[in-house]
């Protein structure tokens, strides 16, 4: 099996790598780039724990090959914010009980980021639909929906 040289931007940094062509994007991020915030939860594209942004669009990295992201710009949860400079969604998830065990949290943050980039002032039903590709077993989704709504309201001045 041949490898492929890929060149991409991950969390603002340029990355060049040689990957096996059957390497999943999720494995590439976790194992090759040590970005373990991207989680493996089902590896069948249902749970959304492995969600990342590719060129701004939220995708499931377990349903993508690393070879496919050549030339793209990626954001993983590690690229959202850092200590002292958290992303508003990270702040809001913390403040509104948008997480408990935290395993699903990176995926939800990225799905929510994608939503708010397209729809800065979503209704609750739109928030729930936008998060329907992510599973959480702890929060009952209430804290998550509250967190996303709150970011929208505070940045939208409602």
């Amino acid at each position: 099996m041949s490898g492929k040289r890929i060149s991409l931007i991950v969390n603002g940094e340029s990355v060049k790598a040689e990957v096996l062509v059957n390497r999943l994007l999720s494995d590439f991020l976790r194992d090759d780039l040590a970005l373990t915030g991207t989680k493996r939860g089902c590896e069948t594209g249902v749970c959304g724990a492995c969600s990342v942004l590719v060129d701004g669009d939220v995708v499931k990295s377990c349903l993508s090959l690393a070879a496919q992201v050549d030339g793209k710009t990626l954001t993983t949860v590690e690229g959202l914010g850092r200590i002292g400079d958290l992303h508003p969604l990270q702040e809001s998830f913390m403040a509104h009980g948008g997480l408990q065990c935290g395993y699903c949290t990176p995926g939800f943050l990225l799905a929510a980021a994608d939503l708010l980039s397209r729809n800065p002032d979503p209704q609750d039903a739109e928030i729930r639909e936008a998060l329907s590709g992510n599973l959480c077993r702890c929060t009952g989704y209430q804290g998550i929906v509250d967190a996303v709504r709150n970011v929208a309201e505070s940045t939208h001045g409602n």
């Binding site: 959304g48 590719v54 669009d57 995708v59 499931k60 799905a111 994608d114 590709g133």
Partner: peptide, 9 residues
Amino acid sequence: LANPQVRNQ
């Protein structure tokens, strides 16, 4: 269809 991620992929 499906969910946002799948629609993006």
